[in-house]
Each structure stands twice: as structure tokens, then as C-alpha cells.
Amino acid sequence: MQLEKIQMFEANNLNVWFGAGADRFHAVKKASFSISQGESFGLVGESGSGKSTILKAITGLAENWTGRLTVDGEDLGQKRDRDFYSKVQMVFQDPYASLHPRHTVDRCLSEPLRMRNASNIDARINQSLLEVGLDPTYRFRYPHQLSGGQRQRVAIARTLIQDAKFLLLDEPTSALDVSVQAEILNLLNDIKKQKGLTYLLVSHDLAVVSHMCDRIAIMQSGKIVETIDKKMLQTATTKTDYAAALISASYGFKREIV
């Protein structure tokens, strides 16, 4: 075990705005949280809570933000550099939209390597396919020849092949069937253990978040309302009303089932 916790990520007083002038919308308000290396951190909230916006700010896709964002000890500015991209990668929600429809799996995985003039591309592609449980015969398929679960595996392979250490997961299983979700969540946990990855998981599904994450921040209307850990979530020992309401709603009509 590690003697001291290394912070992989830290957000300090993060504010994000969209639009300008009269239409300006304050999407994230004074968010602060940190994630240690090897930890799995969840961001939960309903639509409009700002959780996906935080991911955008980290990846450099949000233009108007203030505060401090630190990844692996380095503060982030307006632009992101090569160094950042080699550490941080993202898995998107919609498997039908995150792969280029005219590129084969092979092109999708080889492109990041070719951009870095990496060697051994063939071997690395085959290896990353195996790591995500895909048969190498799928290598030259197009996305429309793959199922939703298979596409998501390719998306995960795309992050692994770049040796990313910090993965941003934006609702990675919301668009998948329940049985496929189970496979993907297990896969994510397996590779996290094998490679010592750090996860920031954004989701609206409390059950998924409680399964995957060690600590969870609950967001509402741009603010982090409460930060709890797995145990508190499972026993519903929360401090704020909103957190309690969220947990109870996720049982909702599910009360009869045990």
C-alpha cells in the first residue's frame, strides 16, 4: 500500500459559465473536490446539475471558467498539451456517437499512436483489444458492425492504448442494456485494478455509482451539495435533504423489491 496519498486530481473553487451577456448561464458554482491516485470518484446529479460540465472543463472544452484545476500535480490553463492528453482520457456516454462512423476499429486505435510516432502499433492494437475482451478479428470492423457493448469496449481500448492514467467516464453505461452494463462495469473495475487507474465517473444512476465508486459528490444546480462515501450511500446516512431525496427516489417505486 502507498505510504502517502498522491493526488491525481484536484478542483478548487471551480466556476464554469456558458454563453455571454444576458444569456450567460452559471453551470458550475464553486466546486471543490480531490481524487487520490487509484481512487474511483463519482459525480452524481440530475440533468442540469453541472456534472458533465465539470468534465468539459477538465478536458479543455469549456472556455469560460475560473478556479484551479490540478492534474497529477500540474495546474491546468486554458489550453491542454500533449502531456495532458497522455495522462487523461475520456469514455463517452453514447457508444453510437463516440466512434467515427467511417473509421474501422483499427484506424480508431492506431490514430493516436501514429500521432505520437509510436512503434509496434500492430502489437499494441491487438493487445488493447484483448485487454477489453474483444476478439482481434473485430479489428477491421466498422462501428455499425458492432453492438453497443462492443463499441463501448473499443472506446475503452482507445483510452488504454494511450496509457492514460486518469479516466473520465461520462455515463459510460447509460445507453447500454442491463446485462451489457454489468459486463462493462466489471471490465472497468478489472482494468482499474490491473493498471492502477484513477476514475472520475459521472452518472445519474446511484446504483451504478455506489457499485463503482469509493467516494461520491452529489450535485444540484451547479453546486456540490454533499460529498459522501460508499458506505454512507448504501446506508442512506446523508446530511442534506437533497441527497436523501435522491436516494429515496432511486428506490422510488422499487420499494417492494428486495
Binding site: 478536458t59 472544452l61 491542454r80 498539451d81 500533449r82 492528453y85 487523461v88 482520457q89 475520456m90 463517452f92 456516454q93 453514447d94 456517437a97 463516440s98 466512434l99 467515427h100 462512423p101 490514430e111 493516436p112 500521432m115 472506446a155 482507445r158 494511450q162
Partner: peptide
């Protein structure tokens, strides 16, 4: 689209 966001996240230049 997400796939453009993904390639941007790999550091691709606008030309590419």
C-alpha cells in the same frame, strides 16, 4: 459530435 471530441482529446491538430 463525441467522436470529434474524442480525437481532439488525443491532441489532433485542426488540419488532421
Amino acid at each position: 459530435s463525441d467522436f470529434i471530441a474524442a480525437i481532439k482529446l488525443q491532441g489532433a491538430s485542426p488540419l488532421r
